[in-house]
Amino acid sequence: MHLKKIYCDIKKCLGCGSCEIACAVEHSKVKELNNAISESPLPIKRRKAEFIEEGVSISTGCHHCENAACVTACMSGAMYKDKKTDLTQCDKDKCVGCWMCIMTCPFGALTRLREEKIVLKCDLCPDRDKPACVEACPTRALSLGTFKEFKKLCNM
Protein backbone atom coordinates (compact mmCIF):
# COMPACT_ATOMS: atom_id res chain seq x y z
CA MET A 1 0.00 0.00 0.00
CA HIS A 2 2.90 2.36 0.64
CA LEU A 3 4.76 1.47 -2.51
CA LYS A 4 5.01 4.31 -5.00
CA LYS A 5 4.02 3.07 -8.42
CA ILE A 6 2.42 4.21 -11.65
CA TYR A 7 -1.35 4.58 -11.66
CA CYS A 8 -3.58 5.44 -14.60
CA ASP A 9 -6.77 7.44 -14.16
CA ILE A 10 -8.95 5.94 -16.90
CA LYS A 11 -11.24 8.95 -16.82
CA LYS A 12 -8.33 10.94 -18.26
CA CYS A 13 -6.57 8.40 -20.45
CA LEU A 14 -7.08 9.09 -24.17
CA GLY A 15 -5.08 6.06 -25.30
CA CYS A 16 -2.79 8.35 -27.30
CA GLY A 17 0.27 6.17 -26.87
CA SER A 18 2.58 8.97 -25.70
CA CYS A 19 3.49 6.80 -22.68
CA GLU A 20 4.56 3.97 -24.98
CA ILE A 21 6.84 6.21 -27.03
CA ALA A 22 8.34 7.86 -23.95
CA CYS A 23 8.98 4.39 -22.46
CA ALA A 24 10.72 3.11 -25.57
CA VAL A 25 12.86 6.24 -25.85
CA GLU A 26 13.83 6.06 -22.17
CA HIS A 27 14.92 2.45 -22.67
CA SER A 28 16.93 3.22 -25.82
CA LYS A 29 20.67 3.75 -25.91
CA VAL A 30 20.52 7.43 -26.91
CA LYS A 31 17.39 8.37 -24.92
CA GLU A 32 16.32 10.81 -27.63
CA LEU A 33 13.40 10.21 -30.00
CA ASN A 34 14.80 11.26 -33.38
CA ASN A 35 17.79 8.96 -33.07
CA ALA A 36 16.19 6.21 -30.99
CA ILE A 37 14.03 5.20 -33.94
CA SER A 38 17.07 4.20 -35.96
CA GLU A 39 18.77 2.12 -33.28
CA SER A 40 19.37 -1.52 -33.93
CA PRO A 41 17.83 -3.44 -32.30
CA LEU A 42 14.95 -1.01 -31.84
CA PRO A 43 14.27 -0.05 -28.24
CA ILE A 44 11.30 -1.81 -26.68
CA LYS A 45 8.53 -0.24 -24.62
CA ARG A 46 7.35 -1.77 -21.37
CA ARG A 47 4.02 -0.01 -21.31
CA LYS A 48 0.84 -0.37 -23.34
CA ALA A 49 -1.93 2.04 -24.11
CA GLU A 50 -4.98 -0.12 -24.64
CA PHE A 51 -8.45 0.43 -25.93
CA ILE A 52 -11.09 -1.00 -23.60
CA GLU A 53 -14.36 0.17 -25.12
CA GLU A 54 -15.67 3.24 -26.92
CA GLY A 55 -14.31 6.25 -25.04
CA VAL A 56 -12.35 4.21 -22.50
CA SER A 57 -8.64 3.53 -22.74
CA ILE A 58 -5.98 2.62 -20.25
CA SER A 59 -2.24 2.74 -20.05
CA THR A 60 -0.86 -0.32 -18.30
CA GLY A 61 2.46 -1.71 -17.21
CA CYS A 62 3.84 -3.66 -14.28
CA HIS A 63 1.83 -3.06 -11.10
CA HIS A 64 4.63 -4.29 -8.86
CA CYS A 65 2.01 -6.51 -7.11
CA GLU A 66 2.41 -7.32 -3.41
CA ASN A 67 2.03 -11.07 -3.99
CA ALA A 68 3.43 -11.07 -7.47
CA ALA A 69 2.32 -14.07 -9.52
CA CYS A 70 5.33 -13.68 -11.79
CA VAL A 71 7.75 -14.02 -8.89
CA THR A 72 6.01 -17.19 -7.66
CA ALA A 73 5.98 -18.67 -11.14
CA CYS A 74 9.58 -17.87 -12.01
CA MET A 75 11.55 -21.11 -12.08
CA SER A 76 15.03 -19.62 -12.35
CA GLY A 77 14.65 -17.05 -9.57
CA ALA A 78 15.17 -14.19 -12.04
CA MET A 79 11.98 -12.43 -11.03
CA TYR A 80 12.20 -11.12 -7.48
CA LYS A 81 10.85 -8.55 -5.07
CA ASP A 82 13.50 -5.99 -4.18
CA LYS A 83 13.68 -6.06 -0.41
CA LYS A 84 14.53 -2.38 -0.11
CA THR A 85 12.07 -0.88 -2.57
CA ASP A 86 9.38 -3.58 -2.78
CA LEU A 87 9.56 -3.26 -6.58
CA THR A 88 9.23 -6.35 -8.74
CA GLN A 89 12.49 -6.66 -10.65
CA CYS A 90 13.93 -9.08 -13.15
CA ASP A 91 17.56 -10.19 -13.07
CA LYS A 92 18.39 -10.47 -16.78
CA ASP A 93 21.32 -12.79 -16.15
CA LYS A 94 19.12 -15.35 -14.47
CA CYS A 95 16.18 -15.18 -16.90
CA VAL A 96 16.02 -18.22 -19.17
CA GLY A 97 13.08 -17.12 -21.30
CA CYS A 98 10.57 -19.73 -20.19
CA TRP A 99 7.82 -17.06 -20.31
CA MET A 100 6.05 -18.47 -17.19
CA CYS A 101 5.83 -14.92 -15.82
CA ILE A 102 4.02 -13.83 -18.98
CA MET A 103 1.58 -16.73 -18.57
CA THR A 104 0.73 -15.74 -15.01
CA CYS A 105 0.75 -11.92 -15.13
CA PRO A 106 -2.90 -10.80 -14.87
CA PHE A 107 -2.06 -7.44 -16.49
CA GLY A 108 -0.10 -8.61 -19.54
CA ALA A 109 2.62 -6.30 -18.34
CA LEU A 110 5.65 -8.29 -19.46
CA THR A 111 7.34 -8.17 -22.84
CA ARG A 112 9.41 -10.83 -24.55
CA LEU A 113 12.81 -9.99 -25.95
CA ARG A 114 12.81 -12.99 -28.26
CA GLU A 115 16.36 -12.76 -29.59
CA GLU A 116 17.93 -12.74 -26.16
CA LYS A 117 15.26 -14.95 -24.62
CA ILE A 118 14.70 -12.65 -21.70
CA VAL A 119 11.71 -10.78 -20.35
CA LEU A 120 11.43 -7.00 -20.15
CA LYS A 121 9.35 -5.09 -17.65
CA CYS A 122 8.74 -1.67 -16.14
CA ASP A 123 11.65 -0.62 -13.93
CA LEU A 124 10.10 2.73 -12.94
CA CYS A 125 12.94 4.48 -14.82
CA PRO A 126 15.76 4.27 -12.26
CA ASP A 127 17.65 7.15 -13.98
CA ARG A 128 14.85 9.64 -13.60
CA ASP A 129 12.95 11.43 -10.83
CA LYS A 130 9.63 10.64 -12.45
CA PRO A 131 9.07 7.77 -14.89
CA ALA A 132 9.21 8.90 -18.54
CA CYS A 133 5.62 7.79 -19.23
CA VAL A 134 4.26 9.87 -16.35
CA GLU A 135 6.09 12.94 -17.59
CA ALA A 136 4.95 12.36 -21.16
CA CYS A 137 1.25 11.91 -20.38
CA PRO A 138 -0.45 14.93 -21.98
CA THR A 139 -3.63 14.62 -19.88
CA ARG A 140 -1.85 13.79 -16.61
CA ALA A 141 -3.76 10.50 -16.50
CA LEU A 142 -0.60 8.78 -15.33
CA SER A 143 0.82 9.55 -11.93
CA LEU A 144 3.50 8.17 -9.65
CA GLY A 145 2.53 7.74 -6.03
CA THR A 146 1.02 5.47 -3.39
CA PHE A 147 -2.47 4.05 -3.80
CA LYS A 148 -3.68 6.49 -1.18
CA GLU A 149 -2.27 9.42 -3.12
CA PHE A 150 -3.82 8.10 -6.32
CA LYS A 151 -7.23 7.77 -4.66
CA LYS A 152 -6.99 11.35 -3.48
CA LEU A 153 -5.90 12.51 -6.93
CA CYS A 154 -8.97 11.11 -8.63
CA ASN A 155 -11.39 11.84 -5.77
CA MET A 156 -12.16 8.17 -5.20
Partner: peptide, 28 residues
Protein backbone atom coordinates in the same frame (compact mmCIF):
# COMPACT_ATOMS: atom_id res chain seq x y z
CA UNK B 1 7.81 16.04 -24.19
CA UNK B 2 6.18 16.71 -27.54
CA UNK B 3 4.00 13.97 -29.02
CA UNK B 4 6.35 11.43 -30.54
CA UNK B 5 4.01 10.50 -33.38
CA UNK B 6 3.60 14.14 -34.37
CA UNK B 7 7.31 14.85 -34.11
CA UNK B 8 8.11 11.97 -36.43
CA UNK B 9 5.31 12.88 -38.85
CA UNK B 10 3.54 9.53 -38.52
CA UNK B 11 0.20 10.76 -37.16
CA UNK B 12 -2.43 11.01 -39.89
CA UNK B 13 -5.48 13.14 -39.14
CA UNK B 14 -6.57 13.50 -42.74
CA UNK B 15 -9.72 11.36 -42.59
CA UNK B 16 -12.12 10.07 -40.00
CA UNK B 17 -11.05 6.44 -40.27
CA UNK B 18 -8.36 7.74 -37.93
CA UNK B 19 -6.58 9.50 -36.44
CA UNK B 20 -4.07 6.74 -37.21
CA UNK B 21 -0.52 6.44 -35.97
CA UNK B 22 2.39 4.33 -37.07
CA UNK B 23 4.47 2.81 -34.27
CA UNK B 24 8.00 4.06 -34.88
CA UNK B 25 9.40 1.19 -32.79
CA UNK B 26 7.94 -1.42 -35.07
CA UNK B 27 5.79 -3.37 -32.61
CA UNK B 28 2.43 -1.75 -33.18
Amino acid sequence: PHCGFGTLGVCCKICNLGPCRIDPFGEG
